[in-house]
């Protein structure tokens, strides 16, 4: 065990480890929120309204006397959930579209990728806002809207990676021996394009957290009293002078989680493709 630890290239995996530690802490907070949070995120206490950080409330209280630390911890659940589901929607649908476009080529490729280019031409926040307006304001719809925003990016990436893999001899051999399309795609192609998709997934996680926070900040995502970093920050806007911690704490939580995923993405990119570092 000690030998393994000694052999481990800490320097090479440094960014992944730092990012992973930040995200690990956030995930633990999200999963074990009822045990980690000192109070319920919904308990009102008019006597304790807008209290600055203290021993009883380490991050202070909000305009309804709710404990800010507890609400920040519970809000991690929403952010992680949205990030995971939205990135998964983008990853699954985008990857399938990209592989199918590259594998079948011709008209299928033209139609699919033109539609992806079209979605890509909308600014992400605009597309998410319009989709949210269309789907209705709820956290589930935020996941779907953000997931749709990610599909073109994953599709482009998986199409490019598939085109490279398709030129490999093992794919040609699989075709020559009459392997089915499905088997070639899932057994020969998919495992070999996973590396860039993983890096993109880490970036998508961070971007999903940013987008969900922006949507909730605008009142289009998670709805009060549900705690979300975005809607907490939005509430804090009304109390910037009296209670600056209401704006600082949720924003810092968004920043840390985005930073964590970005470090993982950068670290994975350096490890999987050292030339990219240049």
């Amino acid at each position: 065990m000690i030998g393994l630890l000694n052999d481990f290239d800490w320097q090479r995996w440094r960014l992944v480890l730092i990012g992973g530690t930040i995200i690990g802490i956030l995930v633990i907070c999200a999963l074990f929120a009822p045990w980690v949070a000192p109070y319920s995120p919904y308990d009102l206490d008019v006597v304790e309204m807008l209290q600055p950080p203290s021993a009883a409330h380490p991050l202070g209280t909000d305009e309804l006397g709710r404990d800010l630390l507890s609400r920040t911890i519970y809000a991690a659940r929403i952010s992680m959930e949205v990030a995971f589901i939205a990135a998964s929607v983008g990853l699954v649908f985008g990857t399938v579209i990209g592989i199918v476009a590259a594998y079948f080529g011709g008209f299928v490729d033209l139609v699919l990728m033109r539609f992806m280019e079209l979605l890509f031409s909308f600014p992400a926040i605009l597309l998410a806002v319009v989709l949210m307006a269309s789907l209705g304001t709820s956290i589930l719809n935020a996941m779907i809207a953000i997931g749709i925003v990610f599909i073109p990016g994953f599709a482009r990436l998986s199409r490019a990676a598939t085109e490279v893999v398709l030129r490999e001899q093992y794919v040609e051999s699989a075709r020559a021996i009459g392997m089915s399309h499905r088997r070639i795609i899932f057994v020969e192609i998919l495992p070999n394009i996973l590396a860039p998709l993983l890096v993109e997934a880490a970036v998508a996680f961070s971007y999903a957290i940013l987008l969900e926070s922006a949507l909730s900040f605008l009142g289009l995502g998670a709805q009060p009293p549900e705690a979300s970093w975005g809607n907490m920050l939005n509430t804090g806007r009304g109390f910037m002078a009296q209670a600056p911690w209401l704006s600082i704490v949720p924003g810092a939580a968004i920043f840390l989680s985005v930073l964590g995923f970005n470090l993982i993405g950068d670290g994975l990119r350096d490890v999987l493709d050292p030339h990219m570092k240049e």
């Binding site: 926070s213 922006a214 704006s247 924003g251 920043f255 840390l256 930073l259």
Partner: peptide, 12 residues
């Protein structure tokens, strides 16, 4: 800086 949400920076 890439991890700072622009709406948080605006608030700060």
């Amino acid at each position: 800086f890439g991890a700072v949400p622009n709406f948080w920076l605006a608030t700060l």
